[in-house]
Amino acid sequence: MFIHRVLCIVCVGCALALPAIAAPASGLSVQVRKADVRSTPSFLGAIVGSLVYADRVTQVEKKGDWIKISRDGTPLGWVHQQSLTSKQIVLKGGEVAKTGASSDELALAGKGFTEEVEKEYKAQNKDIDFAPIDRMEKITIAPEKLAKFLKAGDVSPAAGDTL
């Protein structure tokens, strides 16, 4: 019985200590189709580059919701944390074995609900039309046009900066 109590205490002690020991891994993957890289940790920062889905980057610094990243040792800029994941994203036919990551650390691009599942759904639900959704997704306003729109309407962010 005594040993049970000791183990119990050890369990609790370790559980409380572990989150501090297990620092977040600095390797990150882009989990959106396109992620803008900005010069400053803000949506107002100038876009200095972009990354695509499954790109691997390294975290250098974190400020609020923004993560400063580098790739192959070269600093790139700031990306919003919601666009990144600590999981490795392995594209279909990717080199799973070489990553050495466990399945819990992987987010395979081809798993779960995919284009293949959508195709099957469409085949079973022919009355649901995806054409307007495809058209809707094509409407993307360029960042400079967004900036012009806000400026023309005298919409100025709290920071007093411009997009």
Partner: peptide, 28 residues
């Protein structure tokens, strides 16, 4: 009209706490 709505909406999305999603924000 669709363009105006998307310009306003996509600008707002940028200022939100989730500025980017997998396929982006689109408005209809």
């Amino acid at each position: 009209s669709v363009r105006y709505l998307n310009t306003l909406g996509q600008a707002l999305a940028l200022a939100s706490e989730r500025p980017e999603t997998f396929g982006g924000y689109h408005f209809m």
